[in-house]
Design a protein around this nucleic acid. Structure first.
Length: 598
RNA sequence: GCCUGGGUAGUUCAGUGGUAGAACGCUUCCAUGGUAAGGAAGAGGUCGAGGGUCCAAUUCCCUCCCCAGGCUCCA
C-alpha cells in the first residue's frame, strides 16, 4: 500500500521472475551451508533482491564465495521450480519451526487468502526446497541468469526496531554476465561521484571528530558555492513577494510546548538547557518564530498572503547510524518560508509555491525528480493533530495542485505527513540512485489556531489564516550534497569559486597574464594566475582537477595576437581567441546562470 | 540506536609480535615548458583513544570513539 507505484515498477520489471527465482536459490544455498539458518523472506528490488534469514551465528561477506558456489551448484542441477496450492494445515506443519513463516501464514489465513507454495527439486534429490510463495519464476534453476552477492546487513523483522534483527543479504541479478558486469562497473563509477570524495578532492567541506558528528565545516571553496546557492534562492524569494525575516537559534521551552513540537517532535529535539530560571532548546524548525512575527500585531486581509523567508539554521537529533555525508546531518540551514493566507488564496499560493520550486530546481539544472504526496497514516492517528475532515480537505487540496501541475505520476507516501499537515515532497537521486527529499510544500491548518493567528477580513470579522510551510532547496547541506553529485563537482560558471585559471607558459608571460587578469576582474570574473614553477601540462591538469570552467593558456602567440587560448574543463580546446570576445562570452554565461560553458 | 565491515603521513593505500613504507600533496633547489603529472633533495606518523596479555603490541584480547554499507528514522 505504501509507495505502491515503486513496488509496481519492480513487479512489472521483466527481470522479476529471474530475480525472484535467484532469491529462492540463495535461500536454499544458505540453509544448506549454515545449519539452523531459517529463511524469512526477501523480495526483488530495483537491481536485484535481498533475502532475510534468522540465524544465531554470523554470516559475513567472507562467506559469499562459498554461498555463490553452492548457488551455482543448484543452478547446474537444473531443478524444476513448480507452483501449487497448499492448505493451511500442511503449511503449518512444514514451517512448524519457523515462527516468521507461521506469522505470514497466519496473516494469509486471517485475510481469507489462498496460500500457494513453490517447490524446487524433489524430496529424493540432492537439493529440495519448499517455500511459501506467490510466484512468478523462471521454469528451472538453470535459467536464473548472472548474479552476485553484494553486501550483508541487519534488518528488523517487519522493519520495526523493537523486533528481532535478521541477517539480510543483498544481491544483484541480470540476464547475462555482460549486463551484470556493466552494472557492477556502474556502481564503481557512482562511488567516485560520491559527494564526500569530490568534497575531499576539491576541498569543499569536512567533518571533524572533535567538533562532532553530522556537523559539517565548510571550507572556502564549498562555502562559496553554498553561499551562491543560498543567495540565488533567497533573492528569488524576495523577488517573488516574500518578506525577509531572521530568528534566533534557540527558544524557550514554552514556545516548543505551545507549538506542539514537544508533544510530537520531541525525539528529534536536543535536550533542554537552563538559562537562569528558564529552560531553552535548540530550534528544530523555524515555523513558530515566523508565526510570532506574523502575530506581532493585528493583520488585515489586505496584508495576505503574508510570506516570510529565512535561511534558518535548525538542529535535529539524528541517531549516529543515520548520519550520511551532507545528506543527513545534525545541524542544517533550511531555505524556509511560511505563507499565511486566506482559504480562498490557498490553492493559488500552493500553485505559486510549486511554480517557484520548479523554477529554482530547473535553474540549478535538475529535471529528473520524483514527486511524492505525503499523507497521514490512518492507522496511526495519534501521530498527528487535527480532525479527519481537515486532513481530508488538505490532502485533496494538494492532489488538485499536483493534477493542475501535470504531475499525474506522483507517489503517495502513506504516513509521510508532518504532525500538523500533509505535504508535497520532491526528491532527486544521488550518484548511486538513493533518492533524497529536497523540496517540501506543506499545508498546515493546525498551528494557526494553536497560536491564535488571525486576520481581520473585509467585513471586520476575525478569521484564522491557513499556513503553508515550504523549503525548496530543503536544506542547504543536503542540497549541496546532492548537487555536488549531480554536477560531479563541475558547478555552473555562476557558482564556481574560481571561474578562470590563467596559465602562463613561462615566467616571461606573467606580465601579460596580469593584464588579462585585471580586465577580467573589471567584469567581476573570478580569476587567478597559476604562476607556480610548473610545466604548462601540470598546471592544466591541476585546473582540470579543480574543475575550473575556463583555462586561459598564455604564451608568445597569445601576446602577439592580444588574445588568449581557451581550454574548457570539458577538455575542449577552443584555440586562440580575441580577449574581448572571450570576456564577453564568459560574462554572458555567468550572468544568465547558464549551465553551458560556451 | 541496531547488524556487518573498517580506522596506518594532508590524501589514497601497502605492511609487521621487535615502535613503519609507497604514490600523490607540501617546502626548497634545478629545469622555462604549447593543451591532463619535468627532475632532485627535504619536512611530515603517540599506526583512532584507553585498558589488558606479553621481555616486547601498530600487530593479539576487551571497552570506547569515529567512518562506510544496511535497518529504523528524516530536510
Amino acid at each position: 500500500m505504501k509507495k505502491q507505484k515503486v513496488i509496481d515498477k519492480i513487479k512489472d520489471n521483466p527481470l522479476y521472475p529471474l530475480r525472484h527465482s535467484t532469491e529462492h536459490v540463495m535461500h536454499m544455498a544458505v540453509e544448506s551451508l549454515f545449519p539452523g539458518a531459517k529463511k524469512v523472506m526477501g523480495p526483488p528490488i530495483e537491481n536485484g533482491f535481498y533475502g532475510d534469514f534468522d540465524y544465531e551465528g554470523k554470516i559475513t561477506e567472507e562467506d559469499f564465495p562459498k554461498i555463490e558456489e553452492r548457488m551455482r551448484d543448484i543452478v547446474e542441477a537444473n531443478l524444476p521450480i513448480l507452483m501449487r496450492d497448499a492448505g493451511f494445515k500442511e503449511l503449518k506443519e512444514i514451517f512448524k519451526d519457523n515462527p516468521f513463516k507461521l506469522e505470514m501464514i497466519g496473516e494469509i489465513e486471517k485475510d481469507g487468502g489462498n496460500p500457494t507454495v513453490c517447490e524446487i527439486g524433489n524430496k529424493e534429490g540432492r537439493y529440495y526446497d519448499i517455500d511459501l510463495c506467490a510466484g512468478n519464476h523462471t521454469g528451472r534453476t538453470s535459467s536464473i541468469g548472472a548474479f552476485k552477492l553484494l553486501s550483508v546487513a541487519g534488518a528488523y523483522w517487519h522493519g520495526d526496531e523493537k523486533n528481532k534483527m535478521l541477517t539480510r543479504i543483498y544481491a544483484t541479478v541480470f540476464e547475462t554476465q555482460e549486463e551484470l558486469d556493466e552494472y557492477l562497473e556502474m556502481i564503481e563509477k557512482a562511488k567516485e561521484r560520491d559527494h564526500r570524495n569530490i568534497a575531499k578532492e576539491m576541498e569543499l567541506f569536512f567533518m571533524d571528530d572533535e567538533v562532532g558528528q553530522g556537523l559539517p565545516l565548510w571550507m572556502p571553496n564549498g562555502a562559496f558555492v553554498r553561499h551562491k546557492a543560498m543567495e540565488f534562492a533567497f533573492n528569488t524569494y524576495l523577488e517573488r513577494g516574500y518578506l525577509p525575516v531572521t530568528t534566533p537559534h534557540i527558544a524557550s521551552e514554552a514556545l516548543w510546548s505551545h507549538s506542539g513540537h514537544l508533544d510530537f517532535y520531541k525525539d528529534a529535539m536536543y535536550n533542554s538547557f537552563g538559562i537562569e530560571d528558564e529552560q531553552y532548546r535548540l530550534k528544530p524548525m523555524n515555523c513558530p518564530m515566523h508565526i510570532k512575527i506574523y502575530n506581532h500585531r493585528p493583520r488585515s486581509y489586505k496584508e495576505l498572503p503574508f510570506r516570510t523567508a529565512e535561511m534558518g539554521t535548525v538542529y535535529r537529533y539524528e541517531k549516529s547510524g543515520v548520519l550520511q555525508g551532507l545528506t543527513r546531518v545534525r545541524g542544517f540551514t533550511q531555505d524556509d518560508g511560511h505563507i499565511m493566507c486566506t482559504e480562498e488564496q490557498l490553492h493559488d499560493e500552493l500553485m505559486e509555491a510549486m511554480d517557484l520550486t520548479m523554477f529554482v530546481l530547473k535553474t540549478f539544472g535538475f529535471d529528473d525528480f520524483e514527486v511524492n504526496l505525503s499523507v497521514r497514516d490512518p492507522e496511526n492517528k495519534e501521530k498527528y493533530i487535527g480532525g479527519d475532515k481537515d486532513w481530508d480537505k488538505a490532502e485533496e487540496g494538494l492532489k488538485l495542485v499536483l493534477k493542475n501541475f501535470g504531475f499525474e505520476d506522483y507517489i503517495t507516501d502513506v504516513g509521510g505527513a508532518v504532525f500538523y499537515g500533509p505535504k508535497i515532497d520532491i526528491k532527486v537521486s544521488d550518484a548511486i540512485g538513493r533518492k533524497w527529499q529536497l523540496s517540501t510544500i506543506q499545508v498546515d491548518f493546525n498551528l494557526p489556531s494553536k497560536f491564535n493567528m488571525t486576520y481581520i477580513d473585509n467585513s471586520g470579522d476575525q478569521k484564522t489564516p491557513f499556513m503553508i510551510h515550504r523549503a525548496l532547496l530543503g536544506s542547504l547541506e543536503r542540497f549541496m550534497g546532492v548537487y555536488i553529485e549531480h554536477t560531479n563537482g563541475a558547478f555552473p560558471v555562476w557558482m564556481c569559486p574560481l571561474q578562470v585559471q590563467i596559465i602562463p607558459i613561462g615566467d616571461k608571460h606573467i606580465e601579460y597574464a596580469q593584464k588579462v587578469s585585471e580586465k577580467l576582474k573589471e567584469k567581476n570574473i573570478r580569476v587567478k594566475i597559476d604562476d607556480r614553477s610548473e610545466t604548462m601540462q601540470a598546471k592544466i591538469r591541476d585546473a582540470q582537477m579543480q574543475k575550473i570552467p575556463y583555462m586561459f593558456i598564455i604564451g608568445d602567440k597569445e601576446i602577439e595576437n592580444n588574445g588568449v587560448s581557451v581550454r574548457l574543463r570539458t577538455e575542449e580546446n577552443l584555440g586562440l581567441k580575441p580577449l574581448d570576445e572571450v570576456i564577453e562570452k564568459i560574462e554572458k554565461m555567468y550572468l544568465t546562470k547558464s549551465l553551458n560553458l560556451w
